[in-house]
Design a protein around this nucleic acid. Structure first.
Lengths: 357, 357
DNA sequence: TTGTATGCGTTATCAA
DNA sequence: TTGATAACGCATACAA
C-alpha cells in the first residue's frame, strides 16, 4: 500500500479573509455566558433555561454564527457526510440513482460527497482515500468490481459501505436488482412470441462486470429454453442513443439470422428503434425489440417495445436505508435483490403512419 | 477479487470497533520521531532527511495511516471541498453539468459536496447552511433566482461562489450562455424559412426564472422580425420526454395557427417529434421543429431538427475555473456568456420511409 | 442550570 | 533537520 497521495497542495494559503468567522466563544462573549452553555443551548436546548437560551439565540443571530464542522467533527468523530463513488456518472441512469440516494440521506441530515472518477482502476483507491480523509461516515459505491485495494481500505478503516447495483455476495453489503430474473423475463417473453434466434446489443463486457453478468444471464436463460444468440448479431457498444442507432445499423445486414433484438438499456433500444424506423422495418411486425429499461423513455416514444424495468430510484433508497441503519447501529435488514417487472407496452398509435397509408 | 483479505469477519460491525484510527502520533511513535516530523515528512518532504522520510513512510504504510481531514481543516482553515447546489438534479442536462464540474475540481484535489434539494424541500438557505457548516471552500449554485437569504449567507461568510446558468449581473460571479443570442438564432432561422407564426413548448415560467427569460428572449426576437407567438400554441410543461409528447398533442388541434414549433429542450423536442411522427405529420415538410438543445440527442434520432447547442460541459468547466481562480487568489477573468451555435441537421435518411414508398 | 477544563488530530512557530 | 508546544473550535465530563 504505497501512499503519498496527498490531496492537499502544500502551497497557497486560503483566501486571505481578515475577519475570522464567529466562533462559539464569540457568541458566548456577546451573550455573556460560557462557550459550553452556547453549545448546549444550541444542541441540547432542554438543558438550558429559557432566558439564557434566548440571549444565546440572539447573539447567534446577530453574529450569523455557523458551527465549524471541522471542529465538531474532531470532537464528535462524525461528519454527517457520506461519500458516493459513481464512475461514468454523467451517463445513463446513474444521475437518477444519485438523486434518490441524496434525497434520502439529506432527509436525515447527511450531505453527499460525490466522486465521479472517469476511469476505473488503480485510481479507484485514491478516490476513496480522498473521501475517507474528508471523514465520510459511510460510503456508497457503484458497481461490483471493486479492486481489492478499495475493499481493503474500507475494511481497514472500518467504514460502513454499500455496493450499489451489485449482486448479493458473501459479505452482504450489496444491493442490486434481480438481474437473472430480468434476463429470464425478457427471454421467455420473446420465446413465447415464437422467437428462437436473437441479436443482442449491450455494453462492453471488458469494461464492466455488470455487462458480463448480464450477457451470461441472457445466454443462460436462452439456453434453458432452446434459444440461441446469433453470432453476427452480437454487438458490444457503449451506452447511448447514437450508439444504439449505430449498432442496429451494423447488425442489420445479418437480419436473416435473427427475428428479435435485445438491448441492454433503453437508450440503446431507442437508438436501435430509430435505426429500424429509418430502415423501414416494422416493429414488432418484422422484428421484435426488447430491452432492459432504467429510464422509462424508449418505451414511451416507441411503444411496441417490451422492457424489464429496473427500479433505479428504489435502489438509491435502499442503499441509503442500509447505510442509515448502519450509522444508527440498528440491526441490518439483509439486503435483497430488488424485484424487476416485465412491461409490455402496446402501441399508442401508428409508429410509421405513412406505411399504413 | 480476493475478499478474504479482510481482517474483519463479515458479521463484525465496524462501528463496534474500539480501536481508533491511527493518528499522526501513532505513526510518530512507531517511526521513533515526533508528530511534527511525520506531518512535514508527508507534506513537506523536502524539509526532511531521506532516512527519516523512509522510516516515516514505512510506519505510515504499516498502520494504514490516513490523515484526519477534520483536524487538518481546523488548523488549515480549508477543507479542499466545494459545495454544489443543483435543484432538480436528476432531470435534464444537470447531470452533465455536475459531471464536468466535478471532473475539473477533482483534478485540483477538490471534492464535491452535492446538494440536490427538490423544490419544496427545506428552503435554499438551510441547504446552503449545511454546506457552509461542513466547511466548503467555495460553492457553485445552479440558477439565477437565489433568494436574498442565500446571497446574504454567501456574503456574510465571505465564501467564494459562482452562479451557474445565470445571466451576467452587476455582481459578476455568474456564468451562463448567451441565451438572447440563442433565441435570436432560432427565430431568425425559422424566419429565413418563411415561418411567421410559431408555437412554443417550454418549461413553466412560474417555477423558473430561466424559463421566463427564455420566453422573453424568444418573444423579443420574434417581434424584431415581425413574427409572432401563436396564442393557442403556447404550452408550459415540465422538462421531459413524455411531456414533450403530451404537449405536442395538446397543441396539435390548433395547427392551423402555426407553421413551426420551438421547444425549450431537446427532451421536449424529441417527445414532440414523436407525437408528430405518430400523427403522420412530416417534419419539416408540413411543420418545422426547432429546439434549444443541451444533450444532443433529439437531433440524433430525428435529424430534421434545428437546434441551438448550449455548451453544458463548458459551463461546468468555466464554473470550476472561476472558483479555482478565486481559491488561488488569482485575478478573476470576468466571466462572459458562453457562445452558442446553430446546428442544422439534414436528414440522414427517410424519417418515415413508408411515406416515400 | 451553568462554568471550567480537557482532548480531538493536525499544522505552525519557535528553539535546539 | 528535528522536537516541543501552542493554537484551531467544539463537545463533554466534571464541578459548582
Amino acid at each position: 500500500m504505497s501512499r503519498r497521495a496527498s490531496v492537499y497542495p502544500a502551497s497557497d494559503p486560503p483566501s486571505a479573509g481578515v475577519a475570522r468567522a464567529a466562533s462559539l466563544a464569540d457568541v458566548a462573549k456577546l451573550a455573556g455566558v460560557s462557550a459550553g452553555t452556547v453549545s448546549r443551548s444550541l444542541y441540547r436546548p432542554q438543558m438550558i433555561s429559557g432566558a439564557t437560551r434566548e440571549r444565546v439565540q440572539d447573539a447567534v443571530d446577530r453574529l450569523g454564527y455557523l458551527a465549524n464542522g471541522a471542529a465538531r467533527a474532531l470532537t464528535m468523530r462524525r461528519t454527517m457526510t457520506v461519500g458516493a463513488v459513481v464512475p461514468r456518472f454523467g451517463s445513463s441512469s446513474f444521475p437518477a440513482l444519485v438523486q434518490s440516494l441524496e434525497t434520502r440521506m439529506s432527509a436525515q441530515g447527511y450531505t453527499l460527497l460525490l466522486s465521479a472518477p472517469d476511469q476505473r482502476g488503480p485510481n479507484a483507491a485514491s478516490v476513496l482515500r480522498a473521501l475517507l480523509e474528508r471523514g465520510v461516515d459511510a460510503v456508497a459505491l457503484l458497481g461490483v468490481e471493486q479492486p481489492a485495494s478499495v475493499l481493503n481500505l474500507l475494511h481497514a478503516h472500518a467504514v460502513p459501505y454499500v455496493l450499489m447495483w451489485a449482486p448479493p455476495n458473501a459479505e452482504g453489503r450489496c444491493i442490486g436488482f434481480d438481474e437473472p430474473r430480468a434476463s429470464r423475463l425478457l427471454v421467455e417473453h420473446l420465446h413465447g412470441l415464437g422467437h428462437r434466434n436473437v441479436a443482442y446489443i449491450g455494453a462492453p463486457g471488458a469494461d464492466s462486470e455488470r455487462a458480463r453478468r448480464r450477457f451470461n444471464d441472457l445466454t443462460r436463460a436462452m439456453a434453458a429454453c432452446g434459444m440461441r444468440l446469433c453470432n453476427d448479431g452480437f454487438i458490444e457498444i457503449d451506452h447511448g442513443f447514437g450508439e444504439g442507432f449505430t449498432a442496429m445499423r451494423a447488425i442489420l445486414p445479418h437480419r436473416a439470422q435473427y427475428s428479435a433484438v435485445i438491448c441492454s438499456s433503453d437508450y440503446l433500444a431507442a437508438g436501435a428503434l430509430a435505426a429500424l424506423d429509418q430502415a423501414g422495418i416494422a416493429v414488432p411486425g418484422e422484428l421484435s425489440v426488447a430491452s432492459f429499461n432504467d429510464n422509462e423513455f424508449a418505451a414511451f416514444v416507441h411503444p411496441p417495445l417490451t422492457t424489464v424495468r429496473l427500479p433505479i430510484r428504489e435502489l438509491g433508497e435502499q442503499a441509503a436505508n442500509y447505510l442509515l441503519a448502519y450509522l444508527r447501529d440498528e440491526p441490518l435488514a439483509p439486503p435483497t435483490a430488488l424485484p424487476v417487472h416485465l412491461q409490455i407496452r402496446a402501441s399508442t398509435g401508428p409508429t410509421r403512419p405513412g406505411a399504413t397509408a
